[in-house]
Design a protein around this nucleic acid. Sequence first.
DNA 1: ATGTCC
Length: 473
Amino acid sequence: MLNKIDENIYELPIGYKEGMRVPGRLFISESLLEMVEPGTIEQVANVATLPGIVKYSMAMPDAHLGYGFPIGGVAAFREDGGVISPGGVGFDINCGVRLLRTDLTVEEVRPVISDLIEALFKEIPSGVGATSRLHVSDSELTEAFIAGARWAVEEGYGTEGDLEHCEENGCLKGADPSQVSTKARKRGRPQFGTLGSGNHFLEVQYVGEVYDERIARRFGLFKGQVTVMIHCGSRGAGHQICTDHLEVLAKAVRKYNIDLPDKQLACAPIGTPEATNYFGAMAAAANYAWANRQIIAHWTREVFAKYFGDVEMPLVYDVAHNVAKIEEHMVDGRLERLYVHRKGATRSFGPSRREVPQDYRDVGQPLLIPGSMGTPSYVLCGQDRALELTFGSACHGSGRIMSRSQAKKTYRGSEVKASLQREGIKVMATESAVLAEEAPEVYKPSHEVVEVVHALGLAKKVAKTIPLGVSKG
DNA sequence: ATGTCC
């Protein structure tokens, strides 16, 4: 059924499932493919049946089972005849990663890592349903939905330079706060400026290895340097927005007579009110997430300032790995406007794209690939080759191989914590169960995932960061 | 991921 067509590329032919409009493509190694559940392959095939899908239904090497679309899925739809689907974005709209760099070295930070993590844990609220020490009014929330990270910067959280180093400058155009329900606002307002739970984290790390000196220098990275990685999304706001609009889109599927192999692929034709309204609400959630990461980054800088004085902590970059965006891509020799859905997939634009910030333009955008808790993360650089293969996309992380429930049965939080402590990694979490759910063993090895995208030329390895301490939900 | 089932 899966045909190997090249090294690390497998194709799922149109004939695999009735209704497929395009083939499926998995960008994955043989050994990682063995870890992919059959259901995930099925989801790749299901996405290929959606109206207006262009080229292929794609899966990155960290692919696993998701809601409707696989996590690690990339699908692009033409404006004329295509659809937009919340399943292709995910519940945590604009879940993403940002990386701050410092001019501190691992030798300076390691001796105080325990206190530093305790301070970060205290200052940056985390956990399920955590509430913020920031109190925004309803109109301020509306402004954040519209302006994203810029709203936070204008409120004094961070600098103009931060915005230049955010994907989309930290703001998706077309956000429509009128499509955000009262319920979503009610959940999102008190959580604005919180980390969340699950695989979300704030990690103090250091650059353990540099693979490409020239690009690392361009990103401001050097061996032994301390960095901070923040991984979080749109909290209850994005979750509620997704839930609300799934309900509307389930009806739209019947209204517009769309034949779906799975109800979880609920969608609406681009241009219909249902699709436009979801897109407006999704953009609002994406902007909330960017502002959220911006606020958290600011508080992180404040904590570092207490310990290390007036330390500079520029933003290396901020990537969105759960989002749908309008982008121009070459299709059969023509430039077309496409709705690119990346769910658990990172944009990987090389030098030829004007979306890459000016100071990275000659090398490509940074990609931030978090490892699982206690394992290395990677900084990659976008490559033009990705435009040919994946609409300019690559992997987003390690990818789960064990369910949360199974992980809780298999591991104990206290033991996971002790084992990390033995490696010198300080861990703080609101709930011990989260540590069991996020045990390093429940994820695919991140280095294997990164090797595949590097070998395919989707993104280039630049540096590896090693955890010193982590604050979690 | 998520007020982990209104």
